[in-house]
Design a binder for these strands. Structure first.
Lengths: 341, 341
DNA sequence: CAAGCTTGCTCAATCGATGAAGCAAGAATT
DNA sequence: AATTCTTGCTTCATCGATTGAGCAAGCTTG
């Protein structure tokens, strides 16, 4: 029934026996501080050779149980379905490894229950630090971590109890709005108020972006229409539905739109396509987030690209500095060269 | 200097002392088999209450060290920068959790060295099973796992030593090619041989896709031009460069193209845009892989969407069946409704 | 009422790696 | 020759959770 399968994995005791030495000598050699423990180079070499031959792999659980620090760093992330989070995860893994940490990441699908469970599991794995990315309830996670004596940080969405690293949503949105308005003027000959679509009105980032959106309108002397702010959620279907409803609502939809994420942009583009505006070059769009294909959509869509390496650099600086105060660090997003129309 | 920080994490011994009972009773209660161990409901409730109050979190390292099975399942994945791998990772996490397993995932950036290191680390964490997704050297990983008595599986790219679950690349590519050729006929009035671009000639998937590409041409009586097969790698820049070189190569580029991944498609679209073909509706494209924005690119680009849930279902079936033989299971990809031009 | 059963716990060994403390043999110093 | 130092190991307790074995008290049965 079963294939050939080693009954037991090789341990330092097996290696000690094979080398005719003690387990502690083996341990010292394999974890690299054999010089400190005064093991002869000869024995060290022998042990390393035997370990190699036997395909020995450390039992991390045993090692971690004994050691004081786990060197494990955890991250929870809402989704893997867009470039922003994908790049956060990839960069995080890289930077963690470069610092000798072992990253573990889990996706919580914007589900508060899952977030809490994931955090508890990470604590069980003795993470030294937990990064809550885009968490729906970051403070809950901070509290859990604090109770276990583990430090935590917020990324993308801020919390009140732990340090947070987020994009400068206000400035980014203001600049993006300004650009969309300027494009409107250029392409349509006039500056009309834009539609804001996507995101959750309750989340900090969306609120700040709406603030930037208003400010840019005010700066350019354009009135913002209240019914044109549709914080309908992130999912594409929600954006699509919100546009349907807004379109039924009487007066014509604005030609210019500020779309609050690439995910929402999917819904917006679907709506545009469905409602026959696909070739309507008079649509002037901007998106708070970046995706390579959006550039190629060819409607001259402006994008704001959040500075993922910059944000994670700040995250690791905070970790290394040991700071615990609930500051909010805002990282300016990158705004690529203006798109041609 | 230091913030208030709990010196020590709460253990079952602390809880035992608080409850006036033994550590083994606490352990039995908290891991749920207190009925089996004949602990009274009264004591169980008391212990659970105290554990709650103290914010107790299990030390997984200690627990795993003692137990026979870790319930950890590992996956290595090349990148997080496209929908295919993003969806693999998200679905994998979900399905693993649904089976009571703890998923750990790491990204190896198509770097053989990193793959090996990641595999070794996962073995140290006592994974029960390791899934090598799109690995450059899957057999190397299988060997490492076998030496540790750990089962392994290949996903996306097959290996010779462990069971593999992959897309039916041949059938998918044949159907995609057929569709592109039909679209050519429809839009250009004639069926001209296509250009194949992207992927590595050395990888199994690319080879199979090229085979399907040829077969579809043969079926429709179109000759394939050898210099039109550009397996130039996956990165966008490589596709862009390959097109540049091919364009210099004398005769005109084909109007129809089979692009071997969304990542390569980025490069192709960039090239198209740069070379002024962006509004050229005579271009007829197809892409082996799916991205929501590609639909919206509006050139009627055909896509093949790999059946990620189907593939992972097979993966878990293999795991549960305990099969170890190096079979290759091919999962038919999904081909969405034909795109309008 | 003695023997046996049930209930509800506790004891102690164990998982594998680590590192402080200790020990034996040889080298160096007085 | 006696003392101290150095080298190169080994011994053993430990990390926290798990679990087989065991034990005491109460209950049942003949």
């Amino acid at each position: 029934m079963n294939q050939v399968r080693q009954t037991k994995r090789t341990t330092i005791y097996d290696l000690a026996e094979l080398a005719g030495t003690s387990a502690s000598a083996v341990s010292a050699v394999l974890n690299g501080n054999w010089k400190k423990r005064r093991i002869s180079a000869q024995l060290a070499e022998k042990i390393m050779r035997i370990a190699e031959e036997q395909g020995y792999a450390l039992n991390m659980q045993a090692s971690l149980l004994r050691r004081e620090k786990s060197h494990i760093i955890g991250m929870i992330v809402p989704k893997y379905d867009n470039r922003y989070f994908g790049s956060i995860v990839e960069t995080f893994e890289d930077m963690a490894r470069a610092r000798g940490l072992f990253p573990i990441i889990t996706c919580t699908r914007r589900d508060p229950q899952l977030e809490v469970e994931a955090a508890r599991t990470m604590l069980s794995y003795q993470v030294e630090c937990l990064i809550a990315t885009g968490a729906t309830d970051p403070d809950r996670i901070t509290e859990m971590c604090a109770a276990a004596g583990v430090r935590s940080l917020n990324l993308d969405l801020p919390g009140a109890l732990a340090p947070s690293v987020i994009s400068d949503n206000f400035a980014g949105a203001r600049e993006l709005t300004r650009r969309i308005l300027k494009n409107s003027e250029l392409r349509l000959g006039k500056m009309e108020p834009l539609l804001f679509i996507g995101g959750r009105g309750s989340d900090h980032n969306t609120a700040e972006r709406i603030r930037g959106f208003r400010e840019a309108h005010a700066d350019l002397g354009v009135a913002v229409h209240e019914e044109n702010i549709l914080a309908c959620g992130y999912a594409p279907e929600k954006a699509e539905k919100a546009l349907d409803e807004r379109a039924l609502g009487g007066d014509a939809l604005p030609k210019g739109m500020f779309v609050n994420s690439t995910i929402s942009l999917e819904g917006v583009m679907r709506w545009i396509r469905r409602s026959g505006h696909l070739d309507d070059r008079s649509l002037v769009l901007g998106c708070f987030d970046w995706d390579p294909f959006v550039t190629l959509l060819g409607n001259g869509i402006e994008m704001v690209r959040q500075d993922v390496p910059g944000m994670l650099t700040k995250v690791f600086e905070l970790i290394e500095s040991g700071a615990n105060k609930p500051v909010v660090i805002q990282v300016p997003p990158l705004i690529p060269e203006a798109q041609e129309a």
